[in-house]
Design a protein around this nucleic acid. Structure first.
Length: 213
DNA sequence: CAGTCGATTCACT
DNA sequence: GTGAATCGACTGA
């Protein structure tokens, strides 16, 4: 039996906590992305924690820059970055202002607006692949740098809001090393996912790129 | 100011 | 499993 999801919005205080508490607590929550074409709702199944400036894996490790500035701002806002020359990834900022922690949203299950997501994810072979991976997730939800800094805790009709949903029991939460993270940051087991969920992305260790000729 | 490479994905072998 | 795609942020000289 499936409990009906709680449509209450998560308050900002939810994100104003240590990022390692917030990250696993986000599993099972519903991210609502309101686009001009309509809403898309995503049940979060996989996330990664990036713990402020002391975390070598974090974009904030070397201090504030124009790109990562939002991470240093108040919790509950969205940090979007552009990478590999073609993809976007989105995070939710955690902890008090100035601490620069964030949770990368890595994967989820589209629970509403799949028809919209499919038009943006033409290479997906089935609906489970629509948001299986952080760049796929951002693509499916039509997220790019224009949305960097958006407040996800303002109102339900804003570009982003997050609903209480149905939190995942602790015994269903798994954790392990973060995907694609290089160097010292790779040791932290700060990737969290829902056990046996078919929308969780496969783990890949970081692979240094070979030099181009 | 040039070199390097990334919190990745996709096509192809 | 391997390599290309593609560009902007960051680094170090």
């Amino acid at each position: 039996m499936i409990a009906s999801p709680d449509r209450t919005s998560l308050p900002r205080t939810f994100f104003d906590r240590p990022v390692l508490d917030v990250a696993p607590d986000l599993l099972g929550r519903i991210l609502v992305r309101t686009t001009p074409d309509g809403p898309i709702a995503l049940r979060l199944t996989e996330v990664e924690a990036y713990d402020g400036q002391k975390d070598p894996g974090s974009h904030a490790y070397r201090g504030r820059t124009p790109r990562n500035g939002v991470m240093f701002g108040p919790p509950g806002h969205v940090y979007v970055y552009f990478t590999y020359g073609m993809w976007h990834c989105m995070n939710l900022v955690c902890g008090p202002e100035g601490t620069a922690s964030a949770v990368l949203l890595r994967a989820g299950e589209i629970v509403e607006g799949a028809e919209l997501a499919r038009t943006r994810r033409l290479s997906a072979r089935n609906d489970k692949e629509l948001a299986k991976g952080p760049a796929r997730l951002a693509t499916a939800l039509d997220v790019d740098r224009a949305l960097d800094g958006e407040d996800a805790c303002s109102d339900p009709d804003a570009p982003f809001s997050i609903l209480t949903g149905t939190p995942v029991p602790p015994d269903q939460v798994r954790n392990g090393p973060r995907t694609g993270v290089s160097g010292e940051g790779a040791v932290h087991p700060w990737r969290f996912w829902i056990a046996d969920d078919p929308t969780v992305s496969p783990y890949r260790a970081h692979v240094p790129r070979r030099r181009r000729t």
